[in-house]
Structure formats: structure tokens, C-alpha cells
Amino acid sequence: MSSPLMRGVYLVEFIILAAPATIVLGYLAMVLGVVSGGAFLVGTPSALLAGGKEDVQMAVFGGIGFGLAVFGLMSFWIFVSLSFDYMRGRLEASPQARRKYWRGVFYAAIPMAILGSLAFASGNVGSDSPFPFFFLGGLVLLIPAIHLGIALHAGVNPSLGERPPPRSSRGLSENSK
């Protein structure tokens, strides 16, 4: 799956779909992180000292927003680093690369689940809420992400979880004969 043709197809997917979505969603995640982190830092001391309902809400939701932004940025970083390695032909289908890929999927799943629930709760795409557009932007990233996952898992025996060892290393070693 790592042929030059497939890497070329992935490059087109990355340029047309992933790069715009990653830039826009990454920028929004950074802005959300700064705003939420500020709300968390401002709200936490007053929530601990005064205990007002608004201060507690600002601290809790600021912390949640900051955590979601961090998860989103970590998943973007993993996706972009694996993508550049794949496009350059340096990405090996190793267990470490697959673990890194699935870690990125996990980091992206939490913000996507929350954005999806907010998108459906806020109504249709024509409403004033930005959540459906953020959610759709994340869905656009699925096409290159699935392509990358297929490239990483090509030739893996799913029953063993890895590629089977070469025939020469099966059975007895040469020293024990």
C-alpha cells in the first residue's frame, strides 16, 4: 500500500481535504485552548475562595475546553507527522507507528464525540451555531486518516496482531540442533 501511486493519491487527499481542515480546526483548537485556559485560570481561584455558581461553572467548563483543545492539537500533531513520513516514503508499518496512529485516533475521538453531540444538539447546518461546521471539518479528515490507517496496517495478520515471523525463525534455532 506504500507504492508511489498510493502516496501520490494520499498527497492529493492531504492537500485538498486534510490541510485546509487541519489548519482551520487546529487554529480554532489553539484559540479555544487559550480562551478556555484563561477562563480556567481566572475561574479556579475565585471558585475555590468564593464558591459562586458562575465561578465554578467557568472553572469546570474552562478546564473541559482546555482539555479538548489539547487532545485536538495532539491528534493533529500525530496525524501530520505520520502523514509527512508516509508521503516521503519513510513510514514503516511497524508496531510503534500503528500504536502512534491509534493514539492519535483516540485523541481525536473525544473532541469529535463532543463536537458531534453539540452539532446535533444545536440544530441544522443553517443555524448560527458553528458546531456543525467544526464537526463536518473533522469528518473530512476521516478520508486521509483512513487511508493512512490502511497503509499502516497493510499486510498485518489480524489474528496474530502482527506480521508472522519469517519461516527461518520459526521452530528450533540453529544452536539447539
Rank of each mutant, 00 (worst) to 15 (best):
S2W: 02
S3N: 04
M6T: 03
R7H: 00
G8L: 00
G8Q: 08
V9R: 00
V12T: 13
V12K: 09
F14D: 07
F14M: 15
I16H: 01
L17Y: 03
P20M: 03
T22W: 04
T22G: 12
I23H: 01
L28R: 06
L28Y: 08
A29T: 07
A29V: 09
L32V: 05
L32E: 11
G33Q: 15
V35G: 09
V35F: 14
V35Q: 11
S36R: 08
S36T: 13
A39H: 06
L41P: 09
V42L: 03
S46E: 15
S46V: 13
L48S: 11
A50Y: 14
A50M: 12
G51S: 06
G51N: 12
G51Y: 10
G52P: 13
K53G: 11
Q57E: 14
M58G: 12
A59F: 02
A59G: 05
G63F: 04
G65H: 13
G65N: 04
F66H: 00
L68V: 11
L73A: 13
M74S: 11
S75N: 11
S75W: 15
W77L: 07
V80Y: 14
V80F: 05
V80I: 13
S83I: 02
D85G: 05
M87T: 15
R88D: 15
G89K: 01
E92L: 11
A93N: 03
A93T: 14
P95C: 03
P95Q: 12
Q96Y: 02
R98I: 07
K100P: 06
Y101M: 00
A108F: 13
M112P: 07
M112R: 02
A113F: 09
S117D: 10
A119R: 08
F120W: 15
A121K: 12
S122Y: 09
G123V: 03
G123W: 12
N124V: 12
N124Q: 15
G126K: 12
S127L: 08
S127G: 05
S127R: 12
S127P: 10
S127T: 04
P130S: 10
P132G: 01
P132R: 00
F133S: 03
F134A: 14
F135H: 02
G137W: 00
G138T: 04
G138P: 04
L139W: 01
L142N: 10
P144H: 02
A145D: 10
I146F: 08
I146W: 07
L152S: 02
H153W: 05
A154E: 03
G155I: 08
P158E: 01
P158H: 00
S159R: 13
S159W: 13
L160P: 03
L160G: 05
E162P: 10
P165W: 08
P166K: 06
P166I: 11
G171V: 03
E174V: 11
E174F: 04
N175Q: 09
